[in-house]
Each structure stands twice: as C-alpha cells, then as structure tokens.
Design a binder for these strands. Sequence first.
DNA 1: ACCTACGGGACGTCCCGTTTAT
DNA 2: ATAAACGGGACGTCCCGTAGGT
Lengths: 216, 216, 216, 216
Amino acid sequence: MHKGELTRQRIIAEAAVLFNQRGFTGCSMQDVMEATGLEKGGLYRHFTCKEDLAVEAFKYSLDKVRRARFGEDTDISDAIPLLLYKVRQFVRVPSPLPGGCPIMNTAIDADDGNPTLLHLAHQAVQEWKDGLRAIVEQGIRSGEIKPDAQPGRIANLIVSTLEGALMISRLENTRHAILDAEETLCAFILDLAPNAERSPKPTRRELGTRTAQPAK
Amino acid sequence: MHKGELTRQRIIAEAAVLFNQRGFTGCSMQDVMEATGLEKGGLYRHFTCKEDLAVEAFKYSLDKVRRARFGEDTDISDAIPLLLYKVRQFVRVPSPLPGGCPIMNTAIDADDGNPTLLHLAHQAVQEWKDGLRAIVEQGIRSGEIKPDAQPGRIANLIVSTLEGALMISRLENTRHAILDAEETLCAFILDLAPNAERSPKPTRRELGTRTAQPAK
Amino acid sequence: MHKGELTRQRIIAEAAVLFNQRGFTGCSMQDVMEATGLEKGGLYRHFTCKEDLAVEAFKYSLDKVRRARFGEDTDISDAIPLLLYKVRQFVRVPSPLPGGCPIMNTAIDADDGNPTLLHLAHQAVQEWKDGLRAIVEQGIRSGEIKPDAQPGRIANLIVSTLEGALMISRLENTRHAILDAEETLCAFILDLAPNAERSPKPTRRELGTRTAQPAK
Amino acid sequence: MHKGELTRQRIIAEAAVLFNQRGFTGCSMQDVMEATGLEKGGLYRHFTCKEDLAVEAFKYSLDKVRRARFGEDTDISDAIPLLLYKVRQFVRVPSPLPGGCPIMNTAIDADDGNPTLLHLAHQAVQEWKDGLRAIVEQGIRSGEIKPDAQPGRIANLIVSTLEGALMISRLENTRHAILDAEETLCAFILDLAPNAERSPKPTRRELGTRTAQPAK
DNA sequence: ACCTACGGGACGTCCCGTTTAT
DNA sequence: ATAAACGGGACGTCCCGTAGGT
C-alpha cells in the first residue's frame, strides 16, 4: 500500500472520531488538520470536499461499529441464542469510537441538509434490521420460534430499544438504560420460543449477563 | 404583555423550529432573522447571544412537546391505564414541532460542546422518567402492579424504546418502528399486572392501536 | 476616528515593516495576520487584496521615511546649507522602519511583476530628486551656486550616492559606506559655491559630522 | 564535459536570469522548468534543493558580471587611468544578464531570510572594493595619487555611487543617473592626482563619456 | 530524465456571531 | 428596531518545493 493511501486511511480514522463527536457542521477541516497534523493541501489531495471526507469517515465508523458490536463474529446458528448473542454483544461492547453510536449521531445530525450521509445511516439501519429479521424468519422456519412471531416488528423493536437506550445512557452518563434494555430484550427474545411459559424471571444463568443491577 | 415581550416570544417560537431542525451549529442567526423578518440588531436586543436564544428556544420546545405528547392532560389515575395512555399518547401525537423530538435532537447535537443545552435535555429526560416511575410506584403500592416490578427500569425501558423508535421512524420515514414499539410496550405494561397471564396475543381491541387509532 | 479605521491603520503599520523586510512575495498574509493578531476576515475587510495592502503599506513607509530622513523639518533657506542639511539628515537619521530604505527595497523587489509598487517607488525618487533640483536651481538664481552647475545631475548624484551607500552599509553591517558618502557629498556641495576654492579638506567644523572614520 | 554537466550548466544559466529578475521567492522551480524545458525530476537530479540552485545561479551571475563590467580585461597599470577605466567600463557595459545588477538584487532580496546568498553578495562587494582599494594604495605608493587619499573611502564611494546610480537608472529607465555618476566619479578620480587643480570643467574629451560612447 | 504523487501553505471568498451607531 | 461595520474563521483552489517510481 503506497504512502498516499496510508495517509488517506489515517485521515479517515481521525476524522471519523471528530465527525462522530461533533457532527458534520460542528467539525471543521481545521479540526481535521490539527488532528492529523496535515495542512490543507494534504487533506484536499485525498478528498474533494468536506462532505466527501465525511462520507468516507462515516463508512469507516459504520464498519468499525458493525464489526465490534453487531455480533457477526459468531458461529451460533440457532435463532434464539443468536438473537440473544447479538443483543448482549451490542450492550457489552462499548462504542469502538468516541462520541457514541455513529448511526444515531448521523441520523440526527444529517437529518437536515445532508442527504448523502442520511442515506448511508438509513442503509446501515436497514441492513442491521434485515439481519435480525432473517434470523427470526429462519427461526420460524426451523420451529425454534413460534410461527406467529413478526420478524419485522421484532427487528424494529430490538434496534429501536437498543439505540434509544444508548442515547439515554449517554445522556445520563450511566449504563442503567442500556442494561435495562438488554434485560427486557432478552426476556422478550426468550418468549419467542413456541413453548415459552410466561416470561417470568429467567434465571441470571439463562440471560448470562451482569449481576443484579436494579434500576436506579 | 407589551410589544417587546410579544416579539421575544415570536422569535423564540420561530427559532425553536429552526434549532430543532438544524441543530445549534447548523442554524445561523441569519436563518432566524429571515424566519422572523427581524434584523440582527432586533434579535440581539432580546438575547445576549446565540446560545441564550437557543436555550430559550429549547425550553420552549420542551414545553410544547411535554404538553402535547407526554399525556399530562388526563385524569386517569389507575397506574396501568395511565401508563398505557402515556405510551399511546406519545405515539399517537406527532411531534408538535418540525424536526423530530427536541430532547433527542438536543441530546445528540449538544453532546459535544454545549453543556447548558445538554443539561436541559438531561433534565427533561429525568423528569419524564420520574413521572413514569412515580406511576409504577404508585401502582405497586395500590396493588395494581406486581410488587417485584422495577419502577426505574420500567421507566428506562419506556423512554428508551419510544425515543429509539422515534429515531428509526424518522430515518425510515414510516411509522412502523414507532407503532411496533407501542405495541410491545403496551403488552409489556399489561404484563405488569399481578394476575397477568402470559402476555399472549392481546387482541387489537385490547391494545387499541394501529387499526384503531382514535383521535386525541 | 472610528474603530475600523484604527484597525486599518494598525494593519498598515505592521504590514509596512513586514513588507519592507521581506518583500511582497516574501511576506504572506498569514505573516500579517500573526503580526496584527487579526484573522483573515479582519484583514480582508480593510483591503481588497494583498497588493492593495502592500500599496498602502508602502505609502505609509514612504511617508515615514520622508518625514524622518528627508530633512523637511527645517527653515534653512540658503541653498548650500540646505543641501548640506538634507544630506546630513539622511545619513544621521536611521531608517525609521526595520528592513532598510523602502524606496530601494521596493524598487528592486517590485522590479519584476508589480507595476503599481514600482511606480510608487519611482514617483518617490522623482519627488526626492525634484526637491533637491529645486534647491540647486534656486541657489543658482540667487547666486549662491555657480551658474554652470547642473541641477538635475546634482540631484541624481546625491540620491544615487546616498542610496548606494545605504545598500553597501546594510550589506556590510557598518556605517562606513554611508559616512564616506556623506563626507564626499558634502565636499561636493561646498564646491558648488561660485567662489569655492579647490575642494580640499573642509574642516570637520564645516562638515559638522562624525569624528575621523577612516575606511576599514 | 559530459552531457549531465552540460545540462547542469544550462540550468544554471537559465536560472541565473530568472532569479536575478524575480528574486528567490519570486521565481519558482516551475519557472525554471519552463525556461529549461526540463521536468522537475530533471532539475532535482542536479540540485538538492531550490536554494542550492539559487546559490549556483548567483555564483554564475557574479562571475558573468565581474568579467563583463569590472574592467579586469586591461593591462593599464597606472592607478588613475585604471580607476577611470574601471568606472567607465562599469558604466559603459550593460548588465550581462537581464534584471540588473545581481549583487544589489541579491543584497536586497536575500536581506531577510537567506544568509547563504547574502554572504555571497557581501563577499562579492568586498572583493570589488578590495580591488579598487588596492589600486589606490598602489597609486599612493607610486606617487600618482596624493598621499592623503583614503583608499577605503574611495573604494566605498565608487561602489556606492555606481550601484546607487544603477538602481536609479533602472527605476527611471534612463541612463541619466548612471552617466551622471560616471562623470562625477571621473572628476573625483582625476582630483586624486597630487597636482590636481580644482576639478574644473573637464572637457568631454577628457571624460570620454556620454557624447563619446565607444563600444566595448 | 520524465512524470506523477505528495504534502505545505498562501490567497481570497463567504458567511457567521457580535457590536455600534442611528 | 434597522442597518452597517467589525473581526473570526471555515472552505476550497491553486501552486509550490520535494520525493519516488519508471
């Protein structure tokens, strides 16, 4: 890999953090210059404009988040354990880059005025949900999950709850909200089994997470 | 109320929309000028600086959202119906100001660099959650809700899920996510009753949503 | 005088030094920014472009040099004493701004590619010479100076010798050249009197300058 | 001389002109490229950096000027005729490279920020003056020049006056200043003879200038 | 010796938040 | 309340000196 490409990647990595923390308008090329130690000429050789850099940086962030939090590093194949794994992984692994979840940040930051970024965020959510939905569908087909479960709705719920809880957690600067979300989502997922009794009190062992953490 | 105060209120109302849509950095005083038809001098007569205006605008937005969506306009006193009412109200009533939920917007927009706004957003979430928790606690005391329910956790879940679903809904430009969240949350709330059977298949009528969508 | 004009003058004063030291191409707007403590916006509000600033700065420098070194602060009216005074004043007073004589600097710096500045330098030399020539002409009319003296040539000689000596002095970082020039020019001027004997050995008193300063 | 060395010399010769006309900062490697028809890589094969090229170019310019204008191509041995010859030669021969006297140009251009070039210019002036002083000293020893003449001062005067006049001449785009300087310097030199009468009215023939302008 | 890639950095435009004068 | 003035600073273009690869 030649020198220019290395520089380009370095810029993207630095910019990803800054854009994630400060948003597109809130982060200036000057900030990127300072973070990378490059001058203007050094940046604009690799990116045609600020938005171009922001797009690359967002893609990089997405990739990093996906790899770190989306639980794609498992060979679990049964639907319910896989769903549980995915939720727990998302909760357990902290954001791999400072500034919180780039999908949510970008969804809100770019909501007005940056269609390109907005579209990428949308796409990322879509793919995330598609993955979850596919698991549910496969679970239904294999009989692991009761047939009247609604895959799309389940995917929506998981993603919504996790993202919402993440936001609240960041705002409160505690992990309560995200852990509460985990617990509820896991119970919900266990309930998807056809023979599931009333959801009551799954043992800690079943959930496999955290010691008792009563809400504040 | 004298003329100056009226003008001030008008500025705040206009600014609230703009700041909610574009964020603090993304919205300029020039934008506010154009929206209000005032000149810059006219604005600075009423607000010492941009942040001052943003704070007032955010307070205004909060107030509006609270009144419209937080279901405070009811005399329901039983815990579970009240919780259901609050969730449904939040879902049913659209954001009273363009740009989505100002709490979430501000929480993310101000996350880096604007402590004052961030604190206000935090406070708003806190109060929202406090209200929900109080209802649960009262329900436990009155026996409506089973004694092992965790009020804080329930509040966290409701707020997280609603906000998260709102974000997804905005991003996708459909109401699916928010409606799915409603349905799940309502089922969850019904499950809080001490005698609740397994949450199974509540009829549409019971949940009173999606198909049945009674106006406010 | 309002604020903007004060700032403008401050910029000019700072820039005059920098341009005189480093030349037009050798001094960047960034340098001026640092010297003045202003940002780009602050500079370009007052000057349409770099050349505009350079022109104003040069005019300022000229004015300063003229006032300080051109001996215009005297009421001597007799031609020969006046010429002597002018030469001595130029030699005695150091450059009022760092970087040497702005006329010479600009004449050479702007020689290629900056006609505006070049023209100003030319003009300055012209006026300087005109002043000297007028004194000689008046001296001839009044009989102080012998009738066959050539005013234009005398002006040329004085200016050339002083500027050349200044350059040599700067280069050598001693005052020898400029003092030698003074001595010779003063002798030359005394020789202009109709009754002047052979120029030899004007007493120190006559010259009124420096103690013996043999060349290196 | 092999091909590479020829190219190197060609680059130096072209660069000498450009640097002399535009100064170090005012002349870019691109300019040199265009003048030589070489590409950048071709230049950097021969010179480690721009300054290196500028130094070589200046040395080349100096050499050329010395040979052309410093009157070293004579076997005159008597002091006064030799001095006269040197002055006249300097005046008569135009600058062998466009852009004026490289010594003066460099002295002023490099005055801030390029010590190497500045030192070379200084050295060149020193050698020039040393040569003149040696002639005067020899003249004193041989009795051609009156014993109280000050060799250093005379050298200073000649160099200063010639360089200053050259600058004025360039600025005015006429030869007046330099011819006036010649005339005065020649008179001054004739006056150095022990038996010199008052310098009066040397005939044109004696000075051999302006009207009579023999080609080189 | 060519040519392209690389990073530095100057220039100037534009718009922003704020102040001042009216 | 208007309107102009003020200074800050982001953005992007262009070109420069230099380094490598061919």
